[in-house]
Structures are given as structure tokens and as C-alpha cells.
């Protein structure tokens, strides 16, 4: 028997209506989500990737009770996000991040104390809890400074601290490491992993592919309001056609040669980019047989070729999926 999922959505749709022009005459309808079905297991880190405007924040807000879906249903921790919002809210944390969303005229400690009270963090534990989260996000030294003096990254850390203050069972992180310096970003990823070790389920959106690859057990790619793929990174590699990526760079390729490359055994996908006179072909390769010497042999007219082999990265997969969807 599998445990019931931490998140389950059925055909979630969400449209926004905005008005355009003077005196609000024209109503523009944007469909941000066009039928999203997802399941997230308890205790996993689930990653949601997708281009700007794909609908990631919209979905995150729906799951964290900040938006009501236009259609469809979603359950988080077994509770309906619309009907049972009041019971769900104490159990979830949401980090939307950004420059806004904090009380600028008071310090970090007071910001946290306010939300600790709103979330009903036991009074006896409140101070200790605040110190603990300040320490965990690395803001302990700046805790008494007013938030208006904070840099963007410091604000981001405070957003994260607030999100975990009430010890949620389920945490939504919308681009948690945006604006953080490399060291802080790494510490934040460490924090995320330590939360999971404590049993927290995490739903994360990010534009940093290595971050998703490093953290997430499973990943969904959202494009223009639709999930175009969801799987483990390994599963996604198979989906886009292979573990291995070979890059072939050189000058003056003939069409026939390109076709020959495409026909090589194990090649599942071929893309090219031009850099001035140079062209770079990127091949996704399913098998281990196709080696750089074999490619060099098939392009015998080009002794100047530069061939590199690497493991197909999540970024490669992501670009393949998003470009495919756009085409």
C-alpha cells in the first residue's frame, strides 16, 4: 500500500482577467494553467521548472491556498485547498520571496515574532524558534536591523525564515535561492535537505537547473500552463533521448553530412547553433557505442573538428522539452 500523496491535483485550471486601456474597457483573459494533474509523495522534494510566465507561481499559490482555481481540485496533505483552507494553513509554509512582503520599518526579529503569533507558535517556544530560524538562514547577525536596510538576498533569507518558523509539514518554495550569493544559495540548499531529513515535503520552483538536479527526486516541466513532462531526472533523460550528449563543432558542414550525423546509431536528437562561421551540433545519444572517434570518422572531411562528450544535464533536457513544446 502506498501512502496517500502529499499533493494531488486534478485538472487544475486558472484564468486571470485583467483590464486594459483607459476606463477599463477591454477585458483580457489569460489562461495561466490549462489543466494540471500532479501527485507529490510525502517526504520528497518535487521540482517545478518552466519558462517565465509558465504558471509556476500561480500553481504554487493555488496549492498554498492563496488563489482559488477556476476549475479542478487540489488536495494538500489530504485537505482540499479551497474547502479546508483553514485547516490546511497551519500545516503549510510558503516562501514567495522577493523584495516585497516584509514589514520594512521593523527589524527581522519583529517580523518573525509577528508571524509566529499569527501562526500560533507556542509562546514559550517563540524566542527560541526565532533565534533558531535566524541562525539557520544566516541572518542572526543582522536580526536587529530594520528590514528596509536589508539587501535583496537578506530579504530573501528572511522570507525563508518566516516560511519555516511554524515548522510546516509541507513547504512551498517559489525560487528560494533567487538573489542569494553562491555560498548562501548552497547553504539554503543544505537547509532544504535538512528539512526533508526532518520529514518535510517540499514543492520547489526554480530556474537553476543544477539546483533542481541536486535537490529534487522528481521534476515536472510546466510550459504555457501545461505539464509537458514529469519524472525523475533519469527518466527525463530517457524521455528526451539519452544520457549522453556529444557536441561537435566545426566549419562548413554540408547538408548531406548533417543528415549522416543524424543517422548515426543511437542519435535521438540533433540541434545546431551558429557562432559566426562556426557551427555546433548537439547530439543526444542513447547508446554507449557512438564515440567521438566514430563521429570524427563519419565527418572525415573535417580534420579541425572539436568533439566534446558530457552527460546530458537537466538544462539540456529542459531546453529540449521547452523548445519541443514551443514548436
Amino acid at each position: 500500500m502506498s501512502p496517500s500523496p502529499a499533493i494531488r491535483t486534478r485538472n487544475i485550471r486558472r484564468a486571470f482577467e485583467s483590464r486594459k486601456g483607459f476606463l477599463f474597457n477591454e477585458v483580457v483573459r489569460t489562461e495561466a494553467l490549462k489543466g494540471v494533474d500532479l501527485e507529490v509523495d510525502p517526504g520528497e522534494i518535487f521540482g517545478l521548472l518552466g519558462p517565465n510566465g509558465a504558471g509556476k507561481t500561480t500553481l504554487t499559490k493555488i496549492l498554498s491556498t492563496l488563489l482559488i482555481p477556476t476549475e479542478g481540485t487540489a488536495e494538500v496533505l489530504g485537505l482540499d485547498v479551497v474547502r479546508d483552507a483553514a485547516r490546511l494553513r497551519p500545516q503549510i509554509g510558503l516562501v514567495l520571496g522577493g523584495e516585497r512582503g516584509l514589514y520594512n520599518r521593523v527589524n527581522a526579529r519583529e517580523n518573525l515574532r509577528y508571524f509566529a503569533d499569527l501562526y500560533g507558535v507556542p509562546t514559550a517556544e517563540r524566542s527560541r524558534r526565532i533565534e533558531e530560524v535566524l541562525e539557520r538562514v544566516g541572518l542572526a547577525d543582522a536580526a536587529d536591523r530594520r528590514v528596509e536596510e536589508y539587501s535583496r538576498g537578506m530579504k530573501q533569507k528572511l522570507h525563508i525564515a518566516r516560511g519555516i518558523l511554524h515548522r510546516p509539514v509541507m513547504l512551498f518554495l517559489d525560487e528560494p535561492t533567487i538573489g542569494l550569493d553562491p555560498k548562501s544559495a548552497r547553504e539554503t540548499r543544505k537547509l532544504v535537505r535538512s528539512l526533508v531529513a526532518d520529514g518535510v515535503t517540499i514543492f520547489l520552483t526554480t530556474h537553476y537547473m543544477f539546483e533542481a538536479e541536486e535537490l529534487c527526486q522528481r521534476i515536472a516541466v510546466l510550459s504555457r500552463g501545461r505539464i509537458v513532462a514529469k519524472d525523475t531526472v533519469q527518466g527525463l533523460r530517457r524521455l528526451v533521448g539519452g544520457d549522453r550528449t556529444l557536441e561537435v563543432e566545426g566549419y562548413g558542414f554540408e547538408d548531406a553530412e548533417v543528415n549522416a550525423l543524424r543517422q548515426l546509431p543511437g542519435v535521438s536528437r540533433l540541434k545546431y547553433e551558429e557562432f559566426g562561421p562556426r557551427t555546433r551540433y548537439t547530439l543526444r545519444v542513447r547508446t554507449t557505442e557512438l564515440t567521438p572517434p566514430a563521429i570524427q570518422a563519419s565527418l572525415s572531411g573535417h580534420p579541425e573538428l572539436a568533439i566534446r562528450e558530457r552527460r546530458t544535464s537537466l538544462e539540456d533536457i529542459y531546453l529540449d522539452l521547452v523548445e519541443e513544446e514551443a514548436a
Partner: peptide, 18 residues
């Protein structure tokens, strides 16, 4: 203005008390 309406509404207490 501050953008604090969102985090305040995700908190379990009804906004009326705030």
C-alpha cells in the same frame, strides 16, 4: 503596498483580527 497581504492571508488567523 508592502506586499504583506499575501503572507498575512496564508496565516491561519482570519485577517479581521489583524
Amino acid at each position: 503596498n508592502l506586499g504583506t497581504l499575501e503572507p498575512t492571508l496564508t496565516a491561519p488567523t482570519p485577517y479581521l483580527y489583524v
